[in-house]
Design a protein around this nucleic acid. Structure first.
Lengths: 125, 125
DNA sequence: CTAACTGTTATACAATGCATATAACACCAA
DNA sequence: TTGGTGTTATATGCATTGTATAACAGTTAG
């Protein structure tokens, strides 16, 4: 895996969450492919200078969210089990706080839609 | 203010954040109008059975986000100071984690856009 | 078989954030 | 003066986060 994980230790976002997002981002970008194996918890922890348990927590969440399969012998392997209903429910709860603020401050539907499409353009191939 | 604040004490979302979101939601829905005054920190705390400081923290955030003006004599008054740049930056950082998951699981642009538009329909008048 | 590697679990610790509680202060209006 | 604002200070209990050390069970290469 050549993909570079970027962590911001000054951020108030938890490290294990940043780690999850970075790996999912790599999958979306196509830089981490289905079937590919991720570094071991100890290896990745050393690579990015964090604790083993923080990586293990991130891997456990990626497993629960259906992005990887964990295996004692070969480590963590990217295998996507799409759960559209769950993702759409998650998207709704993530979008809602932003949309109500957008409405109050006069951000139009067109601007919101444009923002979504630009994010898709940025990550989707 | 007839608007009903709903809090979920079982949620892992902080109470002061839920309170912010509920009030902004009320503004978006038009149930709380510009110029209207919110209950005092002590009154609202008693109404929803939480601590005064939790309400005070929420009011402080609403002030920082530009949704209310605070006044020692008359309390908290809804007065929106739109900061589009800030809201758009916030929307981007809120949307990003959801969008990368959407791309990985095959949620299309159309579905994401539809979700946004349905949220607008739900809150915007 | 041994050694080295996987994920997994248990325990402990410090730091931080959340929510509560009690109390006081400065300001203003009736 | 009395009672209502927001504001601040201090303290406590609790959960989360991240780190640290250690061990366990299963796999694999030598």
């Amino acid at each position: 895996m050549n993909y570079v994980i970027r962590l911001n230790f000054e951020s108030d976002e938890a490290i294990y969450q940043q780690l999850c997002n970075q790996i999912i981002r790599g999958i979306a970008l196509g830089e981490i492919r289905d079937g590919e194996s991720l570094p071991s918890v100890r290896q990745l922890a050393e690579d990015v200078s964090i604790n083993m348990h923080t990586v293990n927590k991130a891997y456990g969440i990626l497993k629960d969210e259906g992005f990887v399969k964990l295996d004692r012998r070969s480590g963590a392997i990217v295998r996507i089990s799409p759960d559209k209903k769950r993702i759409l429910a998650m998207m709704r709860s993530e979008f809602e706080p932003a949309v109500i603020r957008a409405i109050c401050t006069g951000v139009t539907r067109e601007e919101a839609v444009d923002l979504i499409l630009r994010l898709y353009d940025e990550y989707d191939v």
